[in-house]
Amino acid sequence: MKNYYLSENDFSDFVTRMISTKELIAPIAKGPRFVFSKIKSPSEIRLDYDVTILPPKKEFFPPRQNLVKFSSKGYEGCIDPKEKILFGVHPYDVKGIDITDTVFENNKKDMNYLANRRAATIVASNIQKVSSRAFWDTVGADIKAKGHDAFLTKISDGYHFQTLTTKGDALISCGKFTAATEKQSSEAKKVNESVNGTCPEKLKHSSKDIAKKVRDSFSKKEMWDKMAQRCFSCGTCNIVCPTCYCFDVQDKWNVDQTSGVRTRYWDSCLTEEFSKISLGAGHSENFRESRGSRYRHRIMRKAAYLNETLGGPACIGCGRCSSGCTANIADPVEAINTIMEVK
């Protein structure tokens, strides 16, 4: 771990140098909101963003990812990682990436994800603006963000830059860094600590207590049905979630009708089709037919089912589902605080 300082004036050159070595993905403005996107010029970067529409997981696990290409001559896998720098990732999203790292490592390693992940350098950054539905300071609060290669913090007259891995160290040659003074490092620490406790939404219980109570509430059918009453089963909450990783796999022919691709697409457990199997002759069986059971499955996955595997909840408190939900029912804070109060 090494601490550096970069002046405000040198920031632009640093970004330009990074762009010249690798693809640089960073937050940019899109209308009134923000997205992670490929950067062409330093002026596009908006480190003062609150939250991006989609989480950065799309850089490793894109919405559409080819798994196998086939033709009349044979078939081959499509793993083809591109080196890139993912720049300006908020700590909650770093936690999200750490979660998808774990699930794609588990059981059998999924190199379609892992190869992309390993080819990436992640530069986290301090949160300059808190989004209106955020609750990252009360969800899994004891879990530290890890897996990033460097951490950039805006301080009074420039940036504090902490490198954590050799990939992080490699970025130093891109900018006019000097060793950070103790004063600069302590200011960076204060800047990062100062956002804690500022999220507008708050969970009132520990992850452990929540996991137990949520798990024990499985059979409260009426409660779940009521919570899901206004659900459109649209799956937006899944699509914007940094820790959702379910997918469907489909084959598609190219126009020549002899070659094609096997592709995976993000899928959503809130949609009606998700757990349905065909039994033939027009019959089918749906193992989560009611909206309540699907809503419950999502909350269970975020707050209870994966906790043992992950060492904490599969929710990082970004609030994207809360603001993305048309019916305004997806908010985990509201759902969990309600569950905790139901006798």
Partner: peptide
Amino acid sequence: RRMKCGVGKCGHCQ
């Protein structure tokens, strides 16, 4: 169940 990926990833059979 709908065991789509067969390797404990895709979530359909959970």
